[in-house]
Amino acid sequence: MLNRFAGVVGALVFAVGLTACDKLGTPLKWTEDVRLPDGRIVTLTRYQEFNGWRDLGGPPTESDYWFEFRHPDTGQIVRWKWDRTLESLALMMDGRTPMLLVMPNFNGSEQNKCPNPPYLLYRFAGGWEQVPLADRRAALLPSLWSKATAMEASQEARRSLGAAVHLYGAGTPD
């Protein structure tokens, strides 16, 4: 009985040791070319940290992230930095103004008062500021799926957005 208990404790200590020493939490940094809905291409530099919660022996989940790009008209570096509570879905331009469509993740929905549809829109005007999605929905969401998007949304988010677009009479995504 004592040997079995010692074996279980030893296995747990070993698993915790492996979890503490792994390199799975190493941040990632990469670049990607992004086609804006108006056809222009910008290069994003993206960075993702993995310091979120983890199951025993499992990899850590995503945490803070950022991306930046050179404004296609002004050449200014535009940077978005957030934590895992908002997932970036689509980058677009409204004239010369960068716009970013995001979806709340984890407890981000509660922090943002459970938006319906579950998306938030930000505009870059020297810094990022949230703008009401209701004012822009008719103009932005149909073009988001009728042209190439800036960032590919997950299949679940794409289906969800498609349902929201369909409810407002603008059609469904491909």
Rank of each mutant, 00 (worst) to 15 (best):
Y119S: 10
E156G: 14
T74R: 10
Q155T: 13
P37C: 03
F69I: 15
Y122K: 04
V131Y: 00
T97A: 14
G126H: 06
C114Y: 13
S88Q: 09
R35P: 00
G127C: 13
P142C: 07
V102L: 12
E68I: 13
M151V: 15
W53N: 07
R79N: 06
Q111R: 10
M99F: 12
D64K: 05
E110D: 08
N112P: 08
Q111D: 12
A138G: 14
A139L: 13
K147T: 14
M99S: 14
R158N: 12
W66H: 12
Q76L: 11
T61F: 06
G95Y: 01
C114Q: 11
E49A: 12
T61H: 04
A134W: 07
R159P: 03
V42T: 00
L86H: 01
F106R: 13
V102Y: 00
E32C: 05
P117F: 00
G57V: 04
G52R: 00
L36I: 00
L120M: 04
W145F: 14
W66N: 12
L121M: 02
I41A: 03
A125K: 06
S63W: 05
K113Q: 13
D83C: 07
W128L: 06
R96V: 07
N116G: 07
T45C: 02
M103G: 15
R123H: 02
A157Y: 00
A134K: 09
A90P: 08
R123F: 03
S109K: 06
A90T: 11
M151Q: 11
Q130L: 07
Y65M: 09
A150C: 11
H71F: 07
E156N: 10
E129A: 12
D94S: 13
L141Q: 01
R159Q: 14
N105P: 05
R70G: 05
T45K: 03
